[in-house]
Structure formats: C-alpha cells, structure tokens
Design a protein around this nucleic acid. Structure first.
Lengths: 186, 186
DNA sequence: TGAACATATGTGAAAATACACATATAAACT
DNA sequence: AGTTTATATGTGTATTTTCACATATGTTCA
C-alpha cells in the first residue's frame, strides 16, 4: 500500500519513467524505503488503471521506447488524504542484523565482536554517504521549502547511522567486558 | 526466510507452541521483528516437514489441544550456520512515518508539527515500555550469559526510541523556525 | 571478439505477509 | 444475557515483495 504513496510522492516533484523512479528510490529514499524495479512497473500500471497517474509513450531511436508517468489530480488528492490522515501506526521494525544479535549467546564472543565490527563499518560507510549527500544538496544547512521532507529525512538517516555506530561500540564493549569476567582465556 | 531463523532462535530457549511463540514475538522481539500468527503456524508446519523441529500434540480438557514444538539437531545446525555466515546484508529500512515526513512540503506546517508531536509521544511511550522491561529483566544492568542477545537488543530498542524522540524535537524546531521566517502569520 | 554496463520495460512464478473468517471452551466482566 | 478476554489452531484468499528470466540496442572496457 505504501509503495503507491511513495510513487505518488516522487511524482509530485517531476514526471518520470519507471526506470527513473527506480533510480530515485536508490538515490534519495534509500534511508526509509526500497522496492524492486519489477514491483514499481507493476504498481504504476495499476495506478494508471485507477486513474491516479497517466502515461505517455515516448519513442526513442537509440534506446527502447519509454513511458513517462505524470501525476493526475486524483492521484494528488489520494496522496494528500493519506498525508493528512490522523492515524499514526507504530512502525514495525524488521531487522536481520538485530535478529542475529538477539542470538549472540549461541556463538563464540569473538564471532559476535567480529560481526559487530563489520556492522559498525557498514554503518560508518552509510553515514559518510549520507553526509556527502547532505553537503551537496544542502550546503551550509540551507534548503528550499520544496525540499523540506528530504532535509528532515536525510538528517534522520544520518542520525540513525550514528545511533547504530554508537550502539555497536557499546555492544562490543559489553561483550569484551563479559569475556574478561567469564573466563581467563586470551 | 528470516522468520524461520527467528522461530528457531526462540526455540533454543524453550520448547513452545505456536501460540506461545506469537506471544514471545509481541513481548520480547517487538523491537526488531513481528509476524502474524497465521504466518507462524504455517512456518512451523513447513519447518517440521524439513525436519528442523518436531511436535507433540498435548490433549487438554479445558482448552483446545495444543502442539508443542521442539528444536531438532538439524534445526540447531541450520540456525548456527546462519548465525556464523560472514555475509552481512545492509538492512533495508521501510518506514511509513518517514515516508510521510519526506512529503511534508505538501501539507501545512501546523499539520506537520502535529504529526511529529504524535510521533514523538508514541516513541516516548515505547521508550518507557522498554525501560520498564529492562529494569524488570536486568535489575542494575546485570544479565546472565544466556540473555546476552536480549540485553543487547533491548538497549538498541531503548536507544532507537531515544533517537526518534530527539529527531522529532529537532524536526519540530526546524519547521517552527522555517514558519517564522517564511511568513508573518501567527 | 567478448563481456559488462547503461538504457528501458516487462512476464511468470515463488515466497513472504496480512486479512477475514472459522472452530472450540471457560472465565470474567458489564 | 451478552461481550470481551484468554486459550489454542488453523483455512482461504489477497496483497506485497522478490527472483529468475526475457527482450532490445548502443557504448565502453578488457
């Protein structure tokens, strides 16, 4: 259901092809959403059937023909209604990494620490990417009204990465301390 | 796929029925996983077919009969293999709330602020629950080796909630400041 | 010369997840 | 007397998401 709104949301900025929308997912919405390209194409077809968007086929000589999707009034109304609805569902977090962490008592402490080091590195990399993205999009923290959402969510993404990094440090420390107390092995 | 490992993981602690596993999801794994009860029952049947778990029907007089699932060696091996695998996939975050935030430029600032206030409250509530849970499970920060995973993930959950709360405060402040600058309306 | 990559759109099938509904019984609440 | 809550397990169906694969063409790299 939410993919529909994500696509409508992207189309409020510019008309775009399915291919481009897939790119935008990877580039700017990566912090809080993702979708397989086949799903995007299928969802767009459905949305056109519902009259939320319209498409126009553009013939190309060098490349395959493309279909440019444009937001229709009905689509905009549908999106606005969702955005203004009062219900706010608790977000159900699903995270593979944490599932593995929750079972750390089953593996040797060194393996657990190695896992956390890798997780930390990954999130440090993510943090770096996000900082770069922010610096290029919002130099000196300046942003336009039209970019409010991106400004807020990219800060969320950066902080989320930092939260992961800090927690990894803490968790590594806890395991090392436990290891010392628990046995004399080096 | 991950649901399989989540269930195997829970069964390393105790044998349990599908009903109990559903309870445990709601109680202790809520910070990083969730599943509909029908999905749990179906997954357990599949896992029994694969020989990862075995079940025993227990007749009850007052209540409906129940099926107690127990972890088999093959299930434990499968779980361990997963836990020790080196591949660590970047977790793909999907969050409805952030999707809405990313489109804040489309709604009035007051609506955006109201949304963030509600989101903040919700995460403060979540933070409180988690703190209570931690205090009752790990008084004075003490934990047993067998609870390492829960100790680490519950700290993650608490910090995650705090991260949300802090970000909400920041975002509300940003919007209020923008509102002042952008217009003279009260 | 062949492989990989970018452009562009999809189908068929499987897996994961959720929703509505069904079946039982007993206690507790209103 | 009727509703809700708790105990317990599911089926049928729909939706969501992913995976493998297919079709085209032009450019770039090894």
């Amino acid at each position: 259901m939410a993919l529909k709104y994500a696509l409508l949301g992207l189309l409020t900025k510019n008309e775009a092809t399915g291919y481009e929308l897939n790119q935008q997912f990877k580039e700017t919405m990566i912090h809080f959403w993702s979708a397989h390209h086949t799903q995007i194409y299928r969802q767009l077809v459905k949305m056109e059937e519902e009259g939320l968007v319209s498409s126009q086929v553009v013939h190309q000589v060098d490349y395959p023909d493309k279909k440019i999707y444009r937001l229709e009034d009905k689509g905009y109304d549908t999106l606005l209604q969702w955005l203004l609805s009062k219900e706010i569902l608790p977000s159900n977090l699903k995270n593979d990494l944490l599932l593995r962490v929750s079972l750390f008592q089953l593996i040797p402490p060194d393996e657990a620490i190695a896992f956390l080091e890798r997780a930390k590195e990954q999130h440090m990399f993510g943090h770096g990417l996000m900082e770069k993205w922010r610096d290029s999009h919002f130099p000196e923290g300046q942003f336009n009204q039209g970019d409010l959402g991106e400004y807020l969510t990219s800060e969320f993404g950066k902080r989320y990465m930092q939260h992961w990094i800090d927690w990894c440090d803490w968790a590594i420390h806890v395991i090392k301390r436990t290891k010392e107390k628990g046995s004399d092995e080096e």
